[in-house]
Write a protein that binds this DNA or RNA. Sequence first.
DNA 1: CGACTTTGACCTGCGC
DNA 2: GCGCAGGTCAAAGTCG
Length: 295
Amino acid sequence: MERKQGVKVEDVLGNSSCSVNDFPLQSIFDLSSNEEEEIRSLGFMDLLGVQDLICSPLLEIMAAQQVPSRMATQPPNAFSSTKIGPPHEVFNQPATPNSSTISSASSEAVHDEPAKLDDQEEDQRKTKKQLKPKKTNQKRQREPRFAFMTKSEVDHLEDGYRWRKYGQKAVKNSPFPRSYYRCTTISCNVKKRVERSFTDPSMVITTYEGQHTHPSPIMPRSSLAGGAGSAPYHYRQQRQPFVNTLPPLNFGHSNGSIKAGNFHHERRFCSPGSSLLKDHGLLQDAIPSHMLKEE
DNA sequence: CGACTTTGACCTGCGC
DNA sequence: GCGCAGGTCAAAGTCG
């Protein structure tokens, strides 16, 4: 997977001071051809290892939503990606529990085989810890990162994987701390950061870094059968209290199946029958309607 | 007792 | 070089 050296996700999410409300939609939907190509080669869910949770209609969805045509050329498992701000940041539209999401992909120092370097780094770090280390000359390499915003009351969104929290930091300019999680699966070094948007506390910004090397431990893929859209995390997320605090969005042509409250994004994505407008609604959940009008 | 969270300290990168 | 902020570690605490 080739990714581009990129800007930090923070540049887009903005030290937590930037929320969807701050994103000019124009830039969100502005991708260069090269970027598109890269994004195409690396779906968001590919990185998360849950690509099979998502079906392809999103492409059509985005195409039908008057999103710039190139977005509609995204592959099935590469959620329509959009850039926010810096050219390396890409926002996707992943299936996320609990709510509306906007996502962003960042790619820093990503090449085909970062694993070896990572191993070396790991060793260096371990040594470091033990022996009061010195700085390495190597610049730290980072996994590709994907961030998306989710409207949710729970900070830690269930995504089907097991995470261990390994840190929490106060974020500058934000009253909300940022939590750091690591995938608990051995040999899977995927990390994720979770923080609330400063400007919109109802939005949770989740940033994934790395790629899962294993299927979701919570629900075997096979068990997804029959529920094209039942993503693992829904299984649990549904049980968590969640209130969609978004004001009702009126698209005029949205079918009545969308209601405020719990809804299943995966289902929306995966069910060809689910209207494109639904996902438009999803998008608008995360992006103020006035911004959409700016298109 | 194992898995997980909390939290303070430390490390690293970056801008000035 | 310095200071700041982000990121990580690991000991201690908590929970089931």
